[in-house]
């Protein structure tokens, strides 16, 4: 369920009294409802689902995950290299 993809907020404005914005997905721009991310600013990243921003992405958490993945399996690979 719930196809959601990350994009960067490029512009924020009001339409019909609702907070809307333009979000960039690697070169594709789409109008997105920003009503549920009142704290988000231009330049921040969000996850968009059916034209709605549902959450703000946290860069520190993302970096932490990637750092963890870098450490994965290194020990096993070294062991495998020694055996082979």
């Amino acid at each position: 369920m719930c196809l959601g993809i990350p994009g960067q907020v490029k512009e924020i404005y009001e339409l019909n009294g609702v907070r809307m914005g333009k979000v960039d997905f690697a070169g594709i721009t789409k109008e997105v409802c920003l009503a549920y991310v009142p704290e988000i600013g231009v330049g921040d990243y969000t996850i968009v689902h059916v034209g709605f921003a549902i959450t703000q992405l946290d860069e520190a958490s993302a970096q932490e995950s990637l750092r963890l993945f870098e450490e994965m399996g290194v020990l096993q690979e070294e062991l495998a290299d020694e055996v082979s």
Binding site: L3, I5, F25, A26, G27, I28, K30, V48
Partner: peptide, 12 residues
């Protein structure tokens, strides 16, 4: 192309 990949991601 990057933009095709991005549009495909967006539209599923």
């Amino acid at each position: 192309p990057v933009a095709v990949a991005a549009a495909c991601d967006m539209l599923g």
